[in-house]
């Protein structure tokens, strides 16, 4: 992609076109491996070429919504959903409401409707269990979830930096992976590969997943990582990535450090990768669960997401919270003195 200097007018009209194109594109229904006719381009090492910029942005939620009990929407239903959300997202927020205390996503191109995304007719990303929902949590998982909730009820979110969410602290995004779930925006991945390694760079927060293909053994158990440690191999034309050594500190829906993830990447067309993952976590669920997210080709670059370095927001918020407390203390002190 060439960066020529665009004036603001060009950018507006360009993006408006982009929005219409994105919402109108129909790709393979997730789950159907591409037609057998597709000849996947290969790297110099002879492997299917997964390289490029990809997005897994979607409107489809991980779990099937409560009042839906079919596995697929119709095309019309999804079109209505996408159009409705686009209208919703580009509308102005109401002054004096919490959503209004925010920069406008639309202006910065950060609405989901402004993003590239694959059309997905599934009613949930989860394909197994077949009801499209997470398995029931086991006793261990529930106990852990309770402990987390109890801790949160005691600690104020603005008491300290550490009391905040991981993404507010610019440590890691929920869903950075594995498994790699879609972010609200900038839900992009850069894939680089050669004979011995595949690298997946997650845009936020510049996380490089380095996947060796040399069949090396699993890492020592004691080396826990936020994104685990991956081992990959080619199964025919599908890249299979097994990740272990996940430290459990960035849980997916209550997962633990016992979680292991198996991901499968299959390029099914020039602009689509079928991404399928299975989560195993005996400390949380008594069975595994599997989801599919179509990945669609998008454009680069992925500009450096130096989150921690630019995290003035967290600093300002803590300053503001302490200031508010001080003012409250002073006000109540004055009131006591008056009596």
């Amino acid at each position: 992609m060439v960066h020529r200097q665009l004036n603001l007018r060009e950018i507006v009209s360009g993006m408006l076109v982009g929005v219409f194109l994105a919402s109108g594109v129909v790709t393979e229904i997730s789950g159907q491996a591409g037609s057998g006719d597709y000849e996947v381009p290969r790297t110099a090492a002879g492997h299917p070429n997964l390289q490029g910029f990809w997005t897994n942005q979607t409107y489809i939620s991980l779990e099937r919504p409560e009042n839906v009990d079919k596995a697929f929407y119709t095309e019309e239903e999804v079109s209505a959903l996408e159009e409705g959300r686009a209208v919703n997202e580009s509308a102005q927020t109401t002054p004096g409401t919490i959503p209004d205390v925010h920069y406008d996503f639309t202006q910065f191109g950060l609405d989901r409707s402004q993003a590239t995304f694959a059309r997905n007719l599934r009613t949930s990303l989860i394909v197994d269990p077949s009801n499209g929902r997470l398995p029931r949590m086991n006793a261990e998982g529930l106990a852990r979830a309770e402990a987390v909730a109890e801790h949160r009820s005691r600690v104020g979110r603005w008491d300290s930096a550490q009391a905040n969410q991981l993404d507010d602290r610019c440590m890691i995004m929920r869903g950075a992976g594995p498994p790699m779930l879609n972010a609200g925006y900038n839900s992009n991945y850069q894939i680089i590969q050669n004979r011995d390694y595949v690298m997946i760079l997650v845009e936020m927060i510049h996380d490089a997943r380095i996947i060796p293909l040399d069949g090396r053994s699993a890492p020592p158990e004691r080396v826990g990582q936020w994104m685990g440690l991956a081992r990959g191999h080619w199964d025919g034309d599908t890249l299979v990535v097994n990740t272990t050594n996940i430290n459990g500190q960035n849980p997916i829906n209550g997962s633990s450090q016992s979680m292991t993830v198996t991901e499968r990447f299959t390029r099914v067309s020039d602009d689509a990768i079928d991404y399928r993952f299975t989560v195993d976590d005996p400390a949380t669920w008594d069975r595994s669960w599997t989801a599919e997210m179509p990945m669609k080709k998008t454009i680069g670059p992925m500009f450096e997401h130096a989150c921690h370095e630019g995290n003035y927001g967290l600093y300002n918020t803590l300053v503001g919270a302490r200031l508010e407390e001080r003012l409250e203390r002073e006000t109540s002190l004055r009131e006591r003195q008056r009596r």
């Binding site: 839906v68 239903e77 209505a80 409705g84 919703n88 997202e89 109401t94 959503p99 925006y185």
Partner: peptide, 26 residues
């Protein structure tokens, strides 16, 4: 950074209730 579906919380000025009911997508 918005990892959650937080766009959902935008105040919806337009009445999409009818559409939602018809297609049953919550």
């Amino acid at each position: 950074a918005m990892r959650e579906d937080s766009n959902y919380m935008r105040m919806n000025r337009f009445c999409l209730a009818a559409i939602v009911l018809v297609i049953g997508i919550l």
